[in-house]
């Protein structure tokens, strides 16, 4: 929880100002997806739901929406070992990038499903692509951090 709060602090301060190509780096999404890619679908879903609920508290979208999206993509990223036997670090990084893009597309779609329309537009694919590329480069840095964090907690 404490590590999640620190990540959320980084997300709402420095990352909301630093916007490469006008797109915000999605650290919270990266954490949920990375947890799944390392520890499997259950831990991914659990981490995504917890991180997502924290993220929801600072967003203006309905409370619980980001939790469901992050939980879903965390679960999805955790399915990697079912497709790749003994995935290497770069296999995981690619899976993290892929599911980051999926999460970034799912978020406006989920908003649309709850009646908050107008965000499903071509721009979301550009946003998803930029987020995926950034998370691809951040994944090797974040993976050891998530390993350490989840080893210290009951989830891991």
């Amino acid at each position: 929880m404490l590590v999640g709060l620190i990540f959320l602090g980084i997300q709402t301060t420095i990352l909301s100002e630093m916007r490469p190509f006008g797109v915000m780096v999605q650290l919270m999404l990266l954490i949920g997806v990375t947890a799944g890619a390392i520890y499997g679908p259950e831990v991914g879903a659990l981490s995504g739901l917890i991180i997502g609920l924290m993220y929801d508290c600072v967003l203006t979208t309905p409370l619980g929406l980001a939790a469901l999206v992050l939980g879903g993509v965390g679960f999805g990223a955790g399915l990697l070992p079912f497709f790749v036997r003994d995935p290497s670090w770069w296999n995981r990084a690619i899976a993290i990038a892929l599911f980051s893009a999926v999460g970034e597309i799912l978020f406006p779609v989920a908003q649309g499903m709850t009646g908050i329309g107008g965000w499903v537009q071509p721009r979301m694919f550009v946003v998803a692509l930029v987020v995926a590329l950034i998370n691809l480069f951040l994944a090797p840095v974040v993976m050891p951090l998530i390993r350490w964090t989840l080893k210290q907690s009951m989830i891991g």
């Binding site: 259950e42 879903a45 659990l46 739901l49 917890i50 997502g52 609920l53 929801d56 309905p62 409370l63 619980g64 929406l65 939790a67 469901l68 939980g71 709850t114 009646g115």
Partner: peptide, 18 residues
């Protein structure tokens, strides 16, 4: 059980917030 509980909580929160 924790996943189911959290997912259900999230759905309830979405409904309540809407």
């Amino acid at each position: 059980r924790a996943i189911a509980l959290l997912a259900l909580t999230s759905i309830i929160f979405v409904t309540l917030d809407l």
